[in-house]
């Protein structure tokens, strides 16, 4: 199976206050389609930096990144925006829904950028809302929802355009363990049903326990890469 993500000697050095900080030190990694992978490690180990680089939100200081067969380093601003729009879904720790848009508008936003016709957008929003257990909440605004509900909307938003890969940065960190477990179950189910690749950065033992592959980062390097049987 073709890898959905491949990195070669990816290095990232921040030069805050003139002192170079090595966030990533030569990461070589291949992630196959359909994986349910957790990137784990202590704070400052480079998890978020790695997610940002493989999604094209940040550029590596050195090294190469391929995502869904495309060499990211060769892409310009607009091409990269379009590529992210069509290939990656993001789930953030703080949900990051657009507060002035309703649940439906938040979810259909990417499809709107993709110029999906209105009727199809509506149908897909209703279907994904049912999938994430939020039927009947399409017209609500994010501040009217609980944290768990907002994160469900964020997952729906990330998945509705059926991207190749979902990148989730600490998706359960702001949720209590029960809601976190429910969400994780839901993502696991969606991964199994749709074959979408899920990559998490996390501290959460529950996420680690459910992941089929565990990549441990320490000081910007892969310390351990463990594939588990489902």
């Amino acid at each position: 199976m073709a890898p959905v993500i491949a990195t070669e000697e990816v290095t990232k050095v921040y030069s805050g206050d003139g002192v170079p900080v090595h966030a990533l030190r030569g990461i070589d990694l291949i992630i196959e389609r359909g994986e349910f992978t957790a990137l784990v490690g202590p704070s400052g180990s480079g998890k978020t930096t790695f997610l940002n680089i493989i999604s094209g939100l940040d550029t590596p200081t050195d090294g190469k990144v391929w995502l869904n067969g495309k060499f990211l380093s060769r892409m310009g601003g607009n091409a990269l925006s379009d590529f992210r729009r069509d290939n990656i879904g993001f789930v953030f720790q703080a949900y990051n829904l657009i507060p002035v848009l309703t649940v439906e508008e938040n979810i259909e936003y990417i499809m709107l950028l993709q110029k999906v016709p209105k009727s199809e957008r509506h149908e897909r929003v209703l279907a994904i809302l049912e999938e994430v257990g939020l039927s009947g909440m399409a017209s609500r605004n994010p501040p009217q929802l609980s944290g768990g509900q907002q994160q469900r909307v964020a997952i729906a938003r990330a998945m509705v355009s059926q991207p190749a890969i979902i990148l989730a940065d600490e998706p359960t960190a702001n949720l209590d363990s029960k809601i976190g477990a429910d969400l994780l179950d839901m993502m696991y189910r969606l991964n199994t049903q749709t074959g979408m690749t899920f990559i998490f950065s996390t501290h959460d033992p529950m996420v680690m326990a459910r992941a089929r592959r565990l990549i441990m980062l320490k000081d910007g390097q892969i310390e351990r890469d463990e594939v588990r049987s489902p």
């Binding site: 939100l57 925006s81 379009d82 992210r84 729009r85 993001f90 953030f92 990051n96 657009i98 938003r157």
Partner: peptide, 14 residues
């Protein structure tokens, strides 16, 4: 700032 960052991450053009 954060909101605009999210919009850009999702593929919104500058």
């Amino acid at each position: 700032t954060r909101e605009y960052g999210v919009l850009k991450a999702m593929g919104t053009k500058p």
